[in-house]
Amino acid sequence: MMRRFGAPKQRNQRYIPRPGAYAILATGQDVLITHQGGAFDEYQLPGGGIDMGESPIAALHREVMEETGWSIRNPVRLGAYRRFTFMPEYDLWAEKICHIFAAIPVRKVCPPLEPDHSAIWSDARTASKILHSAGDRHFVQTYVRDL
């Protein structure tokens, strides 16, 4: 059974499965995270939804580029977790299946392509405290400790 982080599934609420791929991009004890401003105002691991017919690895490369402007290489799957949440930008209740990868940041190609996103280098301890998702915080704490 996949570990759940965050709020439990609400009774009588229909959830749409929403798989996503997210990256821990570490250099030493620093990690590249994103800040999504605007209505969200939260720190996140770079990544996002896997589109229909898209592989998790292709989604990971695309989402990291869109949210940070960085190219990556050598993604390795670390695990996955689920969380139940309302996604106001899509007006839907989602069962997010979050596939977490470690990858090597190669180079900054461009500024973030998504509106209200900025790429931020943070030490792993700080990132593991400020990331919005408890699942993301757990994976950063576990992965960086294992380096």
Score class of each variant (00 low, 15 high):
residue 123 D to H: 04
residue 120 I to S: 04
residue 5 F to R: 07
residue 15 Y to G: 00
residue 23 A to K: 05
residue 15 Y to V: 01
residue 31 V to D: 01
residue 4 R to N: 03
residue 117 H to R: 10
residue 144 V to P: 00
residue 11 R to C: 03
residue 43 Y to I: 05
residue 58 A to K: 13
residue 92 L to R: 15
residue 70 W to H: 08
residue 33 I to W: 08
residue 36 Q to R: 14
residue 77 R to L: 14
residue 56 P to S: 11
residue 44 Q to G: 01
residue 31 V to E: 02
residue 23 A to W: 06
residue 93 W to I: 00
residue 40 F to W: 08
residue 32 L to K: 10
residue 31 V to W: 03
residue 69 G to S: 01
residue 110 C to H: 06
residue 90 Y to I: 13
residue 34 T to G: 14
residue 129 K to M: 12
residue 110 C to V: 02
residue 30 D to G: 06
residue 9 K to F: 01
residue 52 M to D: 14
residue 64 V to G: 05
residue 78 L to E: 09
residue 93 W to R: 07
residue 58 A to P: 03
residue 59 A to F: 13
residue 60 L to N: 06
residue 59 A to I: 10
residue 76 V to T: 13
residue 106 V to S: 05
residue 24 I to W: 06
residue 103 A to F: 06
residue 121 W to Q: 09
residue 142 T to I: 09
residue 21 A to T: 07
residue 6 G to T: 04
residue 29 Q to I: 01
residue 134 A to K: 15
residue 52 M to P: 10
residue 69 G to L: 00
residue 104 I to D: 15
residue 51 D to L: 13
residue 32 L to H: 09
residue 62 R to H: 06
residue 91 D to K: 13
residue 142 T to L: 14
residue 64 V to Y: 04
residue 70 W to Y: 14
residue 44 Q to H: 15
residue 49 G to A: 11
residue 13 Q to W: 05
residue 122 S to E: 10
residue 94 A to K: 01
residue 10 Q to S: 05
residue 71 S to H: 00
residue 103 A to C: 08
residue 33 I to D: 02
residue 17 P to H: 07
residue 8 P to N: 03
